[in-house]
Design a protein around this nucleic acid. Sequence first.
DNA 1: CTTCACCGATACGGTAGCGTAACGAAGTCT
DNA 2: AGACTTCGTTACGCTACCGTATCGGTGAAG
Lengths: 116, 116
Amino acid sequence: MPLELSASQALGLWHAVSFGQVKLDGRDLTLRQMAILLEIYLVPPPHTVRGLAAKLGVTKPVITRALDTMGDMGFVTRERDERDRRNVVIKRTVDGALYLEKLCDLIIDQGRALKP
Amino acid sequence: MPLELSASQALGLWHAVSFGQVKLDGRDLTLRQMAILLEIYLVPPPHTVRGLAAKLGVTKPVITRALDTMGDMGFVTRERDERDRRNVVIKRTVDGALYLEKLCDLIIDQGRALKP
DNA sequence: CTTCACCGATACGGTAGCGTAACGAAGTCT
DNA sequence: AGACTTCGTTACGCTACCGTATCGGTGAAG
């Protein structure tokens, strides 16, 4: 069920959603942070710092910092892995799910409102 | 010609594009900067600092700084308005158009690659 | 000419991101 | 036991962004 977008639709959608996100939600997440957050919520767990860093092609401190920030926002939690106590497992939260749900609504609404 | 997206498609698309943009293009534009850039390129000119600030609901220095950064990247240029020399008119550039073209391709490709 | 309004840029102190490098804790191996 | 590896985190110096306040430069009105 692929999605066939015209150039105008593609950029128009990106524009409208970025725009709406800036106006409606004061938080100014970086593209990296957004990618990390979506990775955590859309890909089956478990998620680790190491794994996310490798998958996104960034260094580990980038992930640690992003998790710090998004942890403060209440979007993620960290827990030690009891099976191998070197690892830290990243957990989803209700607030994070709500945040992405709002983003999802925005994307759908803006897609629906697209001019041809 | 509106676009009907499922929740899974909406977030999946956002995820894939954010992800691809992080991996393929080192530049880590802020959501605000992205919104400003798309506003400049998708909405008919002229664009002014004042106008963009008002439309996005941010302060003028935010726009000035974003234009500085994106000017360094070669994505926009500024020119004084000769009719009212208080104004500065923001101009598009070839490099900016190319950047957005790549983004556009990414969105279309990822939309096409979406799993249902 | 003076005054006032407007526009974009700049200054300032503060915060948050960056990459590199090093660290402590935990597991592995001999 | 000790040496080595693998985790995530922290430290460091740096850059970029933030909001508030203010600054020149320009135009308009008296």
